[in-house]
Nucleic acid binder design. Structure first.
Lengths: 144, 144
DNA sequence: GTTGACCTTGCCATCATGGGAAGGTGGATG
DNA sequence: CATCCACCTTCCCATGATGGCAAGGTCAAC
């Protein structure tokens, strides 16, 4: 099957299949004489694995690890669990950051009349900046 | 004051100050004869505003809007609030995505013994893919 | 033999940020 | 005055995962 069909069958775009091949996440596909990539059912299976891992927010390096564990029939489930738990921790850290931003903003917005007058605690916070708004070290860039 | 001092005073890196100038988020700094950028207290104040907005997760276009509102002494606080609420909604949407990923993973990890044996529900989910794991439309890419 | 759908590679863009190179400035010290 | 170090300048590159577009080759059907 050609790349387009593999893309439809796996839910991974043709573009991304080529990309995954280029970075070595998946093996190089067999080519026809004309240079077309050819895929088997097993490849589609792998691609679906990758897509599901992406849907769960795993990064490409993590997926590399997961693929290796998948293929390793003598893997220890502890190794898989470790990757998963590390990722959960990462997701939770990101959630905490977002939550802190949202909470701060929500608090400010709740105190903003939202009418036609210029007075606004949101703008004030940004310009005068109560650094101590929430337990945050002075310049800890809470970005991303 | 030079860019380095402005960076230290505002918490925005010199690199980013130049970047913000290049994209027009902040005005072009006055230059010395030698081409050095020169900053006043007011500029540092603006930079701090930008940094705080970034810390709250606002994108550059949103900060552009916020800066304009800040400078507009006849602004309507409703306009500021609208920007803030839209951003809160965005943050919450991202949190929901992350939460769904984390919940799914947590569930799988809870069912993984995490011992030396190969059997692992996490790997199984990825390879066999119970698409119906959590209310998620068939191929709704839950990406970012 | 033409057409249309598909494939190939390659480059560009995203978004905010950092790194580094090559070269000019400025002030302090020998 | 020469030297040195810290600073400044611009320019290019990289990130991560993804999409878009363009120019050109392939294939199958009609």
């Amino acid at each position: 099957m050609n790349i387009g069909e593999a893309a439809r069958a796996s839910g991974v775009s043709a573009k991304m299949i080529r990309y995954y091949e280029s970075i070595g996440l998946i093996g190089s596909a067999v080519r026809t004489q004309a240079g077309y990539r050819v895929y088997e059912e097993a490849d589609v299976h792998t691609l679906r694995f990758v897509r599901r891992a992406r849907d769960l927010g795993f990064s490409v390096p993590q997926i590399e690890t997961l693929l290796a564990l998948w293929r390793d029939r003598s893997r220890a489930s502890a190794d898989v669990k470790q990757v998963a738990l590390a990722h959960i921790a990462e997701l939770e850290a990101r959630m905490r950051q977002l939550k802190q931003m949202a909470d701060t903003l929500r608090h400010l917005a709740d105190n903003c009349c939202g009418d036609g007058r210029p007075h606004c605690p949101i703008i004030e916070e940004l310009s005068e900046g109560a650094e101590a708004a929430s337990s945050r070290s002075p310049h800890a860039s809470a970005r991303r």
